[in-house]
Design a protein around this nucleic acid. Structure first.
Lengths: 202, 202
DNA sequence: GAATTGACAGACTAGTTGGTCTGTAGTTAA
DNA sequence: TTAACTACAGACCAACTAGTCTGTCAATTC
């Protein structure tokens, strides 16, 4: 009875999910300790296993209820608003860089982090994470298709191929920054990336 | 006395290192179990802790004595032999693709795997892994510099920037293949990558 | 307002895991 | 030959960790 004089189960769940997400980013799913989440949230085993059947189900919930909405807010929604694909995308990539610098360089891209550590561990993780990549991939491809229709993007390029290429490159660059704990890779590769994107202009 | 009627300490160490490396690729360093390595090699705790002070030191040895030589053999040496940067690099990337298909798609790039999981865990891991990236990075940049001197590569591009860009892109593509467990990403993004590389021709 | 259900608290457990320690057989040097 | 050292074998341990179980108080229902 040390906590929760007034009850709020939704807030409890969200609290646990958020802390678990941060722990996974720092230490990975395998390095995530249920006890540590409970320490940081102030809840107990009783609360945790009331909301989650197991650690694995917590992993599922983190992917579906934290990571997925984050990608939506960070990439999918902005992509829908794009009017000038070339310039807007360059701007979004620069925003991405700024965001990386803010929350410490060693964190990297959350989606890519979970991809590399969690997806090989269990098929249930992998399918959930792939679903998120697909959403991003399709949203990017659609952005290029719209650009082709409005005559802003060359019509001889394949929107899906470009989408996959850009996603791969962005993640690769962020991965380098993460390991080097420096944004030098962003300076170097970013220049090439911007030049490449500009070649797509009609 | 169930094993090693005849002794060969070097082979013992290499055996442990190789199995540990494969285990890390499959389950990550945190998922690596000393006992499992001993099961698969047939050795015991006594042997293990005679050769390695701790699990962490095993991690160091895997990076320095398995991963690093692998990169040397797979990338550094071939890069030294490059006569025609554009065509040879495209060939090397296709080789890389073939290799990925052979040892199951979910494995991904060893260097990138260890980068994402191990480098955030401990600074001693990170500095060792960064050192390997640097070797690859410099070897690639030097290849482009040679290409510029021989007039095969445009002189208005920065060799180091291209090197970083290519490394990031290659790793990003392999990462996508790993998560999707499909080489579709290689088909899609690979086309863009090849086109980009060709634009570097003088 | 009594009863049922939901949302926790917290002690406890069983299985795992990195690491230790003692013993012993092969190897090498004198 | 023998003493000293190397390269293991394998039992053992302490710490950790996901998960359980019983109890309790708040919230909802009737």
């Amino acid at each position: 009875m040390s906590k929760a004089a007034v009850r709020n189960p939704d807030a409890t769940r969200q609290n646990i999910l958020q802390v678990a997400f941060e722990e996974i980013l720092l230490k990975g799913y395998q390095g995530l300790r249920v006890d540590e989440v409970l320490n940081k949230t102030g809840f107990t085993k009783g609360a945790f296993y009331h909301h989650f059947k197991s650690k694995k189900e917590l992993g599922h919930a983190v992917i579906d209820e934290v990571l997925k909405p984050w990608i939506h807010e960070r990439w999918i929604e902005p992509l829908k608003q794009v009017k000038d694909p070339i310039n807007d995308l360059i701007k979004m990539m620069n925003d991405s860089r700024a965001e990386i610098n803010i929350k410490e360089l060693h964190t990297g891209c959350p989606l890519n982090n979970l991809t590399h550590e969690m997806s090989p561990l269990d098929e249930s993780f992998r399918v959930r994470i792939v679903a998120i990549w697909e959403i991003w991939y399709e949203a990017l491809a659609e952005t290029f298709e719209r650009g082709q229709q409005t005559g802003q993007i060359r019509k001889d390029v394949n929107p899906h191929n470009i989408a996959r290429f850009l996603i791969a490159t962005i993640e690769g660059i962020i991965g380098q920054c993460k390991c080097y704990m420096s944004d030098q890779a962003f300076d170097e590769a970013g220049k090439c990336l911007q030049e490449y994107v500009k070649t797509l202009r009609a």
